[in-house]
């Protein structure tokens, strides 16, 4: 079952900080949900193909066309921080 270490590991993968207090209630909740989900192990699915989408109507292809986009300015208006028409973000490389 899930332990604190697993929760920390998954929280890091999901890039969400969690407090000790959150862990206290998340741990039993997640354990209970995963325990329920484990009922899928009752089924033999060794010969079953997975379904990824509802319907597969083949590949949908179209020509690549260059079009101008008008939404550029609107998109930047939503940015938490911007500079010179670019998204401004914290330093990535040292």
């Amino acid at each position: 079952m899930v332990d604190k270490k697993t929760v920390d590991y998954v929280a890091n993968l999901a890039r969400i900080e969690i407090s000790e207090e959150e862990k206290e209630y998340l741990l039993p909740q997640l354990s209970k949900i995963l325990e329920y989900i484990d009922k899928l192990k009752e089924l033999d699915v060794s010969k079953v193909e997975p379904t990824r989408g509802a319907f597969s109507e083949e590949n949908i292809l179209r020509e690549d066309r260059v079009k101008s986009s008008e939404v550029f300015k609107d998109i930047l208006k939503n940015a938490p921080s911007q500079y010179n028409n670019l998204f401004k973000i914290p330093q990535v490389l040292e």
Binding site: V10, L13, I16, L26, L30, L34, I37, V45, P50
Partner: peptide, 24 residues
């Protein structure tokens, strides 16, 4: 958390892949 766990390496086959098969 449930989604990240189900897709993470080591759990993918037991969770996401198995569920996709039961979906069939």
């Amino acid at each position: 958390f449930i989604g990240t766990y189900s897709l993470s390496s080591g759990y993918y086959e037991d969770y996401y892949l198995r569920a996709s098969k039961v979906r069939t």
